[in-house]
């Protein structure tokens, strides 16, 4: 993937990360938390142009849940409110037991995609999300068994090494799909030169998705569009629409990046095109 893909006008996949698990309504009251709210939000982002929804599960009070039953309730709600959107579950979970990290893979039917965090990252001052290689391998094995496409989450430059290592350890179906993440803390520093290095340093044939946290969401999505990648936006990663202005909805963020893609001449991928591009 490259600038050539932009020049060729290849379709761009828009993923909407609807809810997350780190922050909730205390950060932005418009973040959907219940299955019904998440389902309605999924319908809105699909109408706005998103073809993939990235989902976390929560308890009724917004706190994190890894239970298969909570994911099932969310999936059921999403399917009620959408036509054909691709469902992608998170398997992330700072501090959660490794066994619980597998639970989001066990809905019926399984999600078409699931995230696979490629390594450790710091949280707060005294906590690290470990994401050991053993966990990565065991999650990938279950994804293969269940026919789930992994979305490799690359939080920093070292995690690109982890992709190379994973490719040596395990067989990954083509195309390998990796989300490059930029932001504060343990993440790759959000600067254009690091984005260019990251996309140039990916293993051959890797299809990339672009994710900037907070105020970096729009500029990095734009760079992803320009350099032939795909994009992820949504309230999980960014609660603001503009400086000091909370986003009204996930759809508002999707609508904006769809406008950018349209202005730049890359059509937004339909759900059928997304499945074809990702080999789902």
């Amino acid at each position: 993937m490259s600038y050539e893909a932009f020049l060729d006008g290849d379709p761009v996949i828009v993923t909407a990360a609807l809810t997350g698990g780190v922050h909730g309504k205390e950060a932005n009251p418009n973040i959907p938390e219940t299955p019904g709210e998440i389902g309605r939000s999924a319908g809105e982002v699909e109408a706005a142009g998103a073809s993939v929804v990235h989902l976390h599960a929560r308890r009724p009070n917004g706190e994190r849940s890894f239970d298969t039953e909570r994911f099932q309730a969310i999936d059921d709600a999403v399917r009620r409110h959408t036509d054909d959107v691709v469902i992608q579950h998170s398997t992330g979970g700072t501090g959660a037991p490794d066994a619980d990290r597998h639970l989001p893979l066990r809905t019926d039917p399984p999600p078409e995609m699931a995230s696979l965090d490629m390594g450790p990252l710091n949280r707060y001052a005294h906590l690290t999300s470990e994401n050991t290689r053993a966990l990565v391998d065991s999650l990938h094995a279950e994804m293969v068994d269940r026919g789930i496409k992994p979305e490799l989450e690359v939080f920093n430059d070292g995690h690109r090494n982890e992709i190379y290592g994973l490719l040596e350890r395990r067989d990954l179906a083509d195309p390998v799909y990796a989300t490059l993440i930029f932001g504060p803390g343990t993440l790759t520093r959000p600067r254009p030169e690091h984005f260019l290095t990251a996309i140039a340093d990916l293993p051959d044939g890797v299809t990339f998705n672009t994710l900037g946290f907070g105020r970096h969401q729009l500029p990095f999505a734009t760079m992803g569009i320009l350099f032939g990648g795909h994009v992820r936006v949504g309230l999980e990663d960014n609660v603001y629409y503009d400086r000091g202005e909370l986003a009204e909805s996930n759809a508002q963020l999707v609508e904006r990046v769809v406008r950018v893609a349209d202005e730049l001449g890359r059509p937004v991928a339909t759900t059928d095109e997304t499945r074809e591009i990702l080999g789902l």
């Binding site: 780190v22 922050h23 950060a27 929560r58 917004g62 994190r64 501090g95 037991p97 619980d100 005294h126």
Partner: peptide
């Protein structure tokens, strides 16, 4: 934050005194 609430509640292997 919800993730911090897991620390407050000492869920999983999380411990408010440590984390």
């Amino acid at each position: 934050q919800p993730m911090r609430a897991d620390i407050c509640n000492d869920r999983f292997a999380l411990d408010h005194a440590a984390h």
